[in-house]
Structure formats: structure tokens, C-alpha cells
Amino acid sequence: MAKSPIPMMKTGGGLLPKFVGALLTLAFLAMVIKQPAAAAEMLTGAGAALGAAVEGLMSFLLQLGK
């Protein structure tokens, strides 16, 4: 049996991706604390964009099946 359940998925990672992730997390937390309404609006917009992308992908896949 393979050591990793997901083949070709790196575990661990370098210092730079962890640093960038921590920096983005801190920036988002600062935005939530200082401007909660703007942060909520940003997340709502991101959710709507994600929903539209999923809907478009499903429409494409359904058209392939016809």
C-alpha cells in the first residue's frame, strides 16, 4: 500500500507557502476586526462568484451528456 492516500500530493511544504498563508490569514483577520461589514461583503461576493462558477461548470457538464 502506498504511503500517501493521494498520489503526487506533497506533504509538508517549504517555508514560503507557510509564510504566505500565515500572512494572508493575518491580513484577513485584521480586516475582519477593523472593517467587519467590508469583510462580510467580500466573502458574500466570493461565495456568489464560486456559486456562479459551479453553476457554469454543471451546465457545461450537462450539455456534454446530451
Rank of each mutant, 00 (worst) to 15 (best):
M1V: 10
A2S: 12
K3Q: 13
K3G: 12
S4D: 13
S4T: 10
P5F: 00
I6A: 03
I6F: 03
P7H: 00
P7K: 01
M9C: 00
M9N: 05
M9R: 07
T11C: 01
G12I: 01
G13R: 01
G13M: 01
G14I: 00
G14T: 01
L16V: 09
L16T: 06
P17V: 02
P17H: 00
P17W: 01
F19Q: 10
F19D: 07
V20N: 00
V20L: 05
V20H: 00
V20E: 07
A22S: 10
A22Y: 06
L23R: 15
L23Y: 13
L24P: 03
T25P: 01
T25Y: 06
T25A: 11
L26I: 11
A27E: 13
F28W: 11
F28Y: 07
F28S: 04
F28R: 01
F28G: 03
F28P: 00
L29M: 06
A30Q: 13
M31F: 04
V32E: 15
A37K: 15
A37R: 13
A39H: 05
A39W: 01
E41R: 06
G45D: 07
A46G: 08
A46K: 14
A48H: 09
A48C: 03
A49E: 06
A49N: 02
A49D: 07
L50G: 12
L50Y: 14
L50I: 14
A52T: 09
A53M: 12
A53N: 08
V54D: 04
V54W: 04
L57N: 13
L57D: 15
L57H: 13
S59M: 08
F60C: 06
F60W: 10
F60R: 08
L62H: 04
Q63C: 04
Q63D: 09
Q63K: 12
L64R: 13
K66Q: 12
K66R: 10
K66T: 11
